[in-house]
């Protein structure tokens, strides 16, 4: 149970807002981190914490594309194919990534490691082509770089670059 497992963190998040409902998105991220994706149980638990009907939470979870209602891999790759990235070859690179992992768009590798999704603009057009793995940016992509990143992540997980290791951005309060 989320409530027991991360009690202190939940209290901390709730303390930032004048009403409980406002903590929904951080709590959904927390639940997603805990369960890998938003299971019906996870949604009910979040609703319980927020004293809301689960339908309310479910509606929000389905509104945002970064909440997963189906199981996803340990690493979710979101690959930008919007215009600026496409102009520098993102579509071709994305096909390369899919072939490399043997996946269709949205698919997950059988080892449960990678899920690949086409994404709209990731707001880093200056460093196109761009992809995210679990919210961590990988920029100026080339075929070689993709090979390197996939190999590295497979071997060691995400590099600890000090940010993006958590799904939810931590509130910066002192």
């Amino acid at each position: 149970m989320l409530r027991q497992k991360r009690a202190a963190e939940i209290e901390e998040v709730l303390s930032h807002y004048p009403e409980r409902r406002a903590a929904m998105i951080p709590l959904l991220y927390m639940a997603q981190e805990e369960y890998g994706y938003l299971t019906p149980q996870a949604i009910k638990e979040v609703a319980d914490i927020l004293e809301l009907d689960p339908t309310d939470v479910y509606g929000v979870a389905r509104f945002y594309s970064l909440f997963y209602l189906e199981p996803v891999g340990k690493f979710v790759i979101r690959f930008c194919t919007d215009l600026p990235c496409a102009l520098v070859g993102a579509e071709e690179l994305y096909r390369y990534l899919l072939e490399k992992l043997g996946l269709e768009n949205g698919g997950t590798t059988p080892d449960g490691l990678f899920t690949v999704q086409e994404a709209v603009c990731l707001a880093s057009c200056g460093t196109a082509p761009v992809m995210q793995i679990n919210f961590q940016y990988f920029e100026h992509l080339t075929r070689e770089k993709i090979d390197e990143i996939i190999a590295l992540v497979r071997a060691q997980g995400l590099p600890p670059n000090g940010k993006g290791l958590h799904f939810a951005p931590r509130p910066q309060h002192q």
Binding site: I43, D53, P54, T55, V57, Y58, G59, R62, F63
Partner: peptide, 16 residues
């Protein structure tokens, strides 16, 4: 009752 998803895929859902 709530809306889920967006745009043309939007739909009414219940989760109670």
């Amino acid at each position: 009752l709530e809306f889920a998803d967006r745009g043309r895929a939007q739909e009414i859902v219940t989760f109670s």
